[in-house]
């Protein structure tokens, strides 16, 4: 199969960007399986001489990595669950029920779309302090139980479902909640999946906020633990990369399994609005 230069150039470019995107991930994994003396030795080889899982042993036994992992998982799952319930309810009300003040609620929620956590770090910290939530799971979970993005995505989806579905259910005597659960939700798996996957990924990777509101080592999430651990053990790249692999695995795994949902969520959330 001979390719004209017209097809060769795109293929070469795609190869180049695939290497650019993939090599750092590969390097992280390779480093995590190499002994430290091989990484910094003179005359080191790019292809490792021998592989070992020693760094994983050390990182899991010397630090509460298991605990940090469970913290991350608990926080991310709680946030996902909260968003699935609260965002769905709100999206339902804002697309299916007509009530006085609906427009105002909708405008307010759309307005908060543009307030990222980064600009409210100070006052949100003070709210947590007043609630006595510093160094508790509440601070990591409760502020994020509902989100404008989730409400927005789900509402956009509900709008595309024909109202006749609801009407048919109403004629059969189904109440609002029943209609939502048995009529709308079964037709919304893709949208719900997108919200779940995006929320999980974002919460899992969150850094600035959890490191601000947790001082207790046992309450750290994985990214926070990892970042603080690098300050104590800066030159131990084998350990840092092993920890990095552990922190990346759940999201990478979810990505590989649910690639379609991830991609539609990441691109869809960006172009719609």
């Amino acid at each position: 199969m001979s390719k004209s230069p017209n097809r060769l150039a795109p293929a070469l470019w795609l190869t180049a960007v695939t290497v650019f995107a993939g090599l750092p991930v590969l390097w992280m994994a390779l480093t995590s399986f190499q002994p430290m003396e091989d990484l910094v030795g003179t005359g080191r080889h790019l292809i490792p001489d021998h592989l070992t899982a020693g760094a994983y042993h050390e990182v899991v036994s010397a630090f509460p990595f298991g605990r940090w992992f469970l913290n991350s998982l608990l926080v991310a799952l709680a946030v996902v669950a909260g968003n699935l319930v609260f965002d769905t309810l709100a999206a339902y009300g804002l697309s299916r029920i007509r009530f006085r003040g609906r427009q105002a609620v909708l405008t307010l929620i759309l307005a908060t779309l543009m307030i990222p956590t980064q600009v409210i770090l100070v006052p949100l910290y003070l709210v947590m302090r007043d609630l006595d939530w510093i160094d508790t799971y509440w601070a990591l979970i409760v502020p994020f139980l509902a989100s404008p993005t989730g409400i927005f995505l789900l509402r956009q989806h509900f709008i595309t479902l024909p109202v006749q579905l609801d009407e048919a259910a109403a004629i059969d005597g189904a109440g609002r909640l029943r209609t939502l659960v048995s009529i709308l939700l079964p037709n919304s798996w893709a949208a719900l999946g997108t919200v779940a996957v995006l929320k999980f990924m974002w919460t899992w990777g969150e850094f600035a906020w959890p490191s601000l509101v947790t001082n207790n080592e046992l309450l750290r999430t994985l990214p926070v633990g990892l970042a603080q651990f690098q300050n104590q053990f800066a030159p131990r790249w084998d350990l840092l990369m092993a920890g990095s692999v552990l922190a990346a695995i759940p999201v990478v795994l979810a990505f590989v399994l649910l690639q379609k949902t991830f991609v539609s969520g990441l691109t869809g959330g960006a172009v719609k609005e």
């Binding site: 309810l89 804002l94 929620i109 139980l145 509902a146």
Partner: peptide
């Protein structure tokens, strides 16, 4: 329906 999300936001 909007109350829980509204309180959080």
């Amino acid at each position: 329906s909007v109350a829980p999300a509204l309180v959080v936001i």
